[in-house]
Design a protein around this nucleic acid. Structure first.
Lengths: 196, 196
DNA sequence: CGTGCCATGTAAAGCGTTACATGATTCA
DNA sequence: TGAATCATGTAACGCTTTACATGGCACG
């Protein structure tokens, strides 16, 4: 629903871009607040052009395929501004790992622990990547434009989010490891008497 | 994708339930890890019954509409166990508020601040609700079953998540209020020369 | 000469959101 | 008498995901 606005925000703050540029930017840092696949981005660009929020210009390139560069129109910028002023609700949470926790008594404890270790690693890796971005882009805070400072605040949210995940994994792993030691290891409920 | 598993997990840990019971449970605490509307729940229950993961029993009630109570079948429990053992990725993040931050220079700073104050309040309210649940259900930790202890861990994640949101809002509001004081208030880019 | 990057799509299926709908009971 | 709760849906639309597809260039 807000993919259109995420694209508009990027075109306005980062300037005219090709679909490919946008996809790269989504992968690099936009995904820390709005994830989108390349298929979604290309489709949305066509929608936005049809509605007149962006305009397309074909850049002829020799030796490699032509590219289409999109720019936000005045209409697009006005529409984005108006959308920002509308109140918005938090994203609904959908975390499959928590479903696994809830029904965790169905599987052996070591399997649950393994899954948590894996998730901790994913979030720790992403956290490092975001901290890297933070130190690269925001090394000299005095020199930052308003736009960059606002960008920084959204990056902070990404860093906090990933830190929180790592902290929860650590907290939870400590509890589960303690259960392991105490030999509370649950027996899986897999009905071993059944063949199929 | 995992709505089916969220329902199965609830039927297995909380026992046979009607669609309405499940919807209430989603509203009460499942939503802190998996949000679902009543329409989704009812549709998914029909799918699950068709696939044999759950079985339905009609309870005839006098004076009020009959209800259908669903129970997990052995097949359903096995399928859920197998699914838990599959590795899973984090949910893609989609936070429209961060898009607003990114393009925040397009609107007056007080409007951005107002939106943040509103969001802080939403998360603070939800945090209090979850803490309430925590203190109600987990007052006597010694008496808890394995299943309830696992439930508690997922509730902890919800509490951490909402705390983190409140903390980010506070951090960000402090920065923005400071800008306000310093008279860095950006002028909106709304092209006042245009009539339409 | 193969791998990966540049650059851009189509198609189908599944999932989520919004709107609409029904009809009884209980409580103020 | 009206509002809220119990209890359960259908339909349409739109967004997301997954799979498949193309074709040149650069680098080792």
């Amino acid at each position: 629903m807000a993919l259109a606005q995420a694209i508009m925000a990027s075109l306005i703050t980062e300037g005219p871009s090709s679909g490919y540029d946008l996809v790269k930017r989504f992968d690099e840092y936009i995904s820390c607040y709005w994830m989108a696949s390349h298929q979604q981005v290309y489709r949305e660009l066509r929608n936005l052009e049809r509605q007149g929020w962006i305009s397309a210009e074909t850049i002829v390139q020799t030796g490699r395929p032509n590219k289409t560069v999109y720019s936000a129109t005045d209409l697009g910028e006005q529409q984005l501004s108006a959308w920002i002023l509308l109140p918005s609700e938090p994203t609904p949470i959908r975390e499959s790992l928590m479903i696994k926790m809830k029904a965790g008594h169905l599987v052996p404890l070591p399997d649950l622990i393994q899954e948590l270790v894996y998730r901790r690693q994913l979030h720790a890796t992403n956290l490092n990547r975001l901290k890297q971005l933070e130190s690269e882009t925001f090394a000299q805070p005095a020199a930052l434009s308003l736009s960059l400072r606002l960008h920084y605040l959204s990056l902070r949210r990404g860093i906090r989010y990933e830190s929180e995940w790592v902290a929860w994994c650590d907290e939870t792993l400590e509890v589960l490891n303690h259960w392991s030691d105490a030999d509370l290891n649950p027996q899986p409920n897999l009905e071993p008497s059944q063949e199929q």
